[in-house]
Design a protein around this nucleic acid. Structure first.
Lengths: 335, 335
DNA sequence: CTGAAAGCGCTTACAG
DNA sequence: CTGAAAGCGCTTACAG
């Protein structure tokens, strides 16, 4: 069975294709009687508009593309959900791409979104995509950067003060008596990791009796946390840290698993602190202290900044910086 | 700055638009020298193909659409990841839609995918979408159903034997001494819920001393599990169940939170068993016994069945049914 | 309010 | 191996 087209609908309704199009896109231009006949013909034939043709002629695609660092991380599903909710109100579909922290995948999704001429792109960048994003914007696509203030002067962005998050984490661990802190996460090139680490370092350096080291990982998943922790536990006892600061909660959960496996007590022997405050941090074997980011609100605000940028390409660039919040739980509470 | 088009590339390379198109789509038809000039022109101008035009003319969209019941559930992110991996090898982008168990959202994504004339659709259905899926297929779009054997005769499908899963769960709880079992999940119209419940009921009815009740929820998230459990704990002690079978792990985590909040001991006072075996089940406050589904493999197989269906629309319908596996943990181990 | 004509940017036969 | 012409299915001015 051939797929119905505008001309089939037009013939059935006894009008021209132009009128069918108007009934669909500008119903106020069409008389009520005609509208009803067109609608009936559409229902009869099961007509479904061909988006490629519409888009080609109309010259624009309402959809918005989004690229996240890890689609399996509840933090990013929350951000995406916030963005999707706001975009749905604007009648804009969200196309979600997962870079999995890999530059090649990031580039593939950027290709795809550009080829589709999406109206806008929301991106949590992995690689140095700024030059590319500039070209994207110059071709007329709005861009908003999530979770990064690099490129801050050129693109609107939504982020969290990650240095402050690192400071909060370190400050809390020190106040609980930690003296040897290991920061676990990576890759080190990722802006978020750098800032969380630097914030922690800055705070720890103010305490002469405390020290900090950085264990870099390839990824930010549970497996990475487990492996890093295993390597720490392979050391002689007196060279082990007394606190772990994982740069996200998935890594923290991995750390917790390795610690439990080796019967290291948390927090008595080693304290553990995560980042993002995903729902599972609170439900963990030992509930995990974590630095909360307002994930859904960040997604919503990113979508809003994108709306502003698409509606007025000349509009001033805007940066929304949220403040992180420390949520204290058992994994760092020694008394 | 205007966006570069084929004709601009052609002019710059000193060839015709047709040759540019051939260089892009059928490089074997073009001489090496011409290919190099075209490529140089493309790079120079930063040309990006307009997918809408390509698709309109070529008459097909390589992309595949997927609709899941809950994009925030790690089970579905795992399934999606499996599918995406296989589709990537076939050079097919995956467009992911989240129905959030809502029929209106499911319909919206089906609209979107149909308008985009995707090559295929992978769907875990919420509502009664079979009539619609029939029309979709009749228009030439391949369809594979995930996680449902309803409609089994018409569409290829990938599923797990959920009745068996329910039986495994009930059998284990009974063997651990449970006598009053509450099944928590919903909505009751969802095929997975029905089968898991029915499997459990069948097994429990074989034990005259045991009873089962069903607490239906609106959704399958943590909040639903928490609320249902609260209502159970509001009962007099002797009317409480001694075991909870949550129809997925998110619900189970919610149950666990409510139980902990009321200082009910797990498994001593009430046992808890979940479904899906998401990674977080093992890391929970009390590690949760769960029925495992091979999520990534299911996604991969769904993509493979879709490939078969797109390559030969006349190909026979195929059903892959995986067997569930019980993973026993602390939440049900009374000794 | 309605319709005839043109054209969005590409690719596909086809002729050379 | 290369190019001129046609056309994919829509929507947009424009004329009536």
């Amino acid at each position: 069975m051939a797929v119905a087209q505008v001309r089939d609908v037009a013939k059935k309704a006894g009008v021209s294709p132009a009128t069918v199009s108007n009934a669909l896109n500008h119903p106020e231009k069409v008389s009520a009687a005609t509208l009803a006949r067109v609608q009936a013909a559409i229902d009869d034939l099961g007509y479904i508009r061909n988006d490629a043709a519409r888009q080609l002629r109309a010259g624009s695609n309402p959809a918005v593309g989004m690229i996240v660092l890890d689609a399996a991380n509840p933090y990013f599903t929350d951000v995406a959900q916030g963005a999707e909710q706001h975009l749905a109100e604007l009648r804009r579909p969200l196309l979600l791409g997962n870079s999995a922290q890999r530059e090649d995948r990031e580039a593939t999704y950027l290709d795809l979104f550009e080829q589709q001429r999406v109206a806008g792109i929301l991106i949590a960048p992995v690689g140095n995509v700024l030059p590319r994003l500039r070209r994207v914007r110059d071709r007329g696509t709005a861009v908003v950067i999530i979770d990064r203030n690099a490129g801050a002067d050129e693109f609107s962005s939504v982020s969290v003060d990650d240095k402050q998050g690192g400071r909060l984490a370190a400050d809390h661990l020190l106040s609980q008596g930690a003296r040897r802190i290991a920061v676990i996460g990576g890759p080190g090139g990722l802006r978020q990791v750098q800032h969380r680490l630097r914030g922690a370092q800055q705070r720890i350096q103010q305490s002469p009796e405390a020290s900090v080291e950085f264990l870099e990982t390839d990824a930010m998943d549970t497996e990475s946390g487990r492996r890093s922790t295993e390597s720490l536990l392979a050391r002689p006892l007196h060279e082990r840290p007394d606190a772990l600061f994982a740069t996200n909660d998935l890594v923290a959960l991995g750390c917790l698993q390795a610690l439990a496996h080796h019967r290291v007590r948390v927090p008595e022997d080693i304290m553990l602190l995560g980042y993002d405050d995903i729902a599972f941090a609170a439900s963990a074997t030992i509930p995990i202290t974590s630095v909360r980011q307002p994930s859904a609100r960040m997604g919503l605000q990113a979508a809003e900044l994108l709306r502003l940028a698409t509606e007025d390409p000349q509009a001033a660039v805007q940066h929304t910086v949220f403040q992180p919040e420390l949520i204290v739980r058992e994994s760092t509470s020694r008394e």
